[in-house]
């Protein structure tokens, strides 16, 4: 898995170099779609059943402890990312969380820090650091096994790599075990999200997931307050104007509704 990462990260770079320049945000769509289909098959066959089995068999307190343990590691990563963005206050609370949870929380198994309203869990990563300093997202990527990313956000794997307990442990078997457990924990946490996504999905699943992912990342980079909405879909043509919610003509449809609301004479 680990030796796989480097070529995985490099291959999209090479492909970007030969992709035709387009102002569209998904120039690698043909390749991405193939990887997406591969990932879906793999997920249905292996990851999802394993995650469901894990969620069914493991008692909730144990699952919570496992989630907290990896959450503690991601707090450390979030702290580093906050400092790299110059967000000192947020970074300090992340460090405070790690200190409290590692000691009082028995090595991160209990998330005591979240009980304090002044120590909320934050969600920062290296992709957001680059975004904060003005690096554009680059093309959308779907990576094998790992799923949706953008070129910029794939720097995230550097952070994930260093906070992976597996690499700091000399025992190979235990190391792989922890890496695998983290993957299963992540997937199990997505089960409820997936249920909602399935209810919401319409049309092409690939574009639905892509547009959702890109919007979410964009929002995270701006800490939920982007200066303008992210432009997705087809680029506007020369004579087209951005649709303004205030200028929409609703008279026709409202007349129909009024007729329908009235009982038939």
């Amino acid at each position: 898995m680990r030796s796989l990462l480097a070529p995985l990260l490099l291959s999209p770079l090479l492909l970007v170099a030969c992709a035709t320049p387009a102002n569209h945000y998904d120039p690698l769509e043909p390749m991405n779609r193939k990887v997406y289909a591969f990932n879906s098959t793999l997920d249905k066959a292996v990851l999802k059943p394993v995650a469901e089995g894990y969620a069914a068999v493991t008692p909730r307190p144990v699952r919570t402890a496992v989630g907290n343990f990896f959450g503690n590691l991601s707090d450390a990563y979030s702290g580093a990312s906050n400092f790299l963005q110059g967000k000192w206050r947020q970074g300090t609370t992340d460090v405070g969380r790690v200190l409290i949870n590692t000691t009082l929380g028995l090595g991160g198994l209990i998330d005591i820090a979240s009980m304090a309203p002044s120590l909320p869990k934050r969600n920062e990563d290296f992709g957001q650091v680059l975004g904060h300093w003005g690096v554009g997202s680059g093309p959308y990527l779907v990576l094998p096994v790992l799923g949706p990313k953008t070129l910029r956000d794939s720097v995230d794997y550097v952070g994930v790599y260093y906070t992976d307990p597996g690499i700091h442990i000399n025992d190979t078997l235990l190391g792989y075990g922890l890496t695998g457990l983290r993957l299963i924990d992540t997937r199990a946490n997505l089960l409820s999200v997936e249920e909602t996504m399935q209810a919401a999905a319409f049309g092409d699943e690939y574009t639905f997931v892509r547009d959702g992912y890109l919007q979410r990342r964009y929002s995270l980079v701006w800490d939920g307050r982007p200066p303008e909405p992210l432009q997705l879909g087809e680029p506007l043509e020369m004579d087209e104007e951005e649709i303004d919610v205030k200028d929409l003509d609703m008279s026709g449809v409202e007349k129909i509704e009024a007729q329908e609301a009235k009982p038939a004479p």
């Binding site: 319409f202 049309g203 092409d204 574009t207 639905f208 547009d211 959702g212 919007q215 979410r216 964009y218 929002s219 995270l220 939920g224 982007p226 909405p229 992210l230 997705l232 879909g233 087809e234």
Partner: peptide, 15 residues
């Protein structure tokens, strides 16, 4: 979570 419903459906509706 920053994902606008209107924007997210627009692509598939247009397709």
């Amino acid at each position: 979570e920053g994902v606008s419903l209107v924007t997210n459906y627009r692509t598939s509706f247009n397709q």
